[in-house]
Design a protein around this nucleic acid. Sequence first.
DNA 1: CCGCCGATCTTT
DNA 2: AAGATCGGCGGG
Length: 226
Amino acid sequence: MARRVTAVPGAGSTSGDGAQAAERPGPAPLSQARRLGREFFARDSRVVAVELLNKVLVHDDPGAGLIAGRIVEVEAYLGADDPASHSYRGTTPRTQVMFGPAGHLYVYFSYGMHWCANAVTGDDGVGTAVLVRALAPLEGRATMHERRPAARRERDLCSGPARLTQALGLDGRHNGLDLCAASAAVWIADDDTAPPARPSASPRIGISKAVEHSWRWYVSGDPNVS
DNA sequence: CCGCCGATCTTT
DNA sequence: AAGATCGGCGGG
């Protein structure tokens, strides 16, 4: 049977499973995980994408508490040379954040009803980012289920770019947020879980241009991959 | 499990 | 007119 990781003090109405593991290998508790710094993001989006696998996306949601999931699927987007990227045609009101400094959150409105979240990467002014496409739920499952009544199984909570923003409570208010600022309510944490040694790759999902590039990566076998 | 399609609105 | 999507529905 699957063992849950419930480790965060403070907020909340987590369901009590009284078991307390004395010693076990595996990820450090979320309370000890380190917020990724600017230098992590300020590299080629394809490198950052792969290294984001198995990191933890966290939202310290006012009112709802900590909600978090392990990143299991990502896509890299480039700039002027990537026709599938929002930044392909240069700076616009929508893509302004993408062209800003690395380590900020680019949240865009999709298909008239969904929000999707990216981490801005690379050098300032280049317009590259990594789309987070799926998470393995780690913390705040009860809140995730409340926010996503359509998800009947746990693997439907965060298995898609717009599903995970719903589950974590991310939307346009978070566009431009600095993931690296110590005071920011959203961050990406390293809990000492390494990226997969051999991540799977494929073309990006839902695009019709630049389909020749395999710039989607995921943790093979993870049930939360979209 | 898979494919189809409508929702809904921003951007081109 | 298309889009970095999702969920409901029908069929296998």
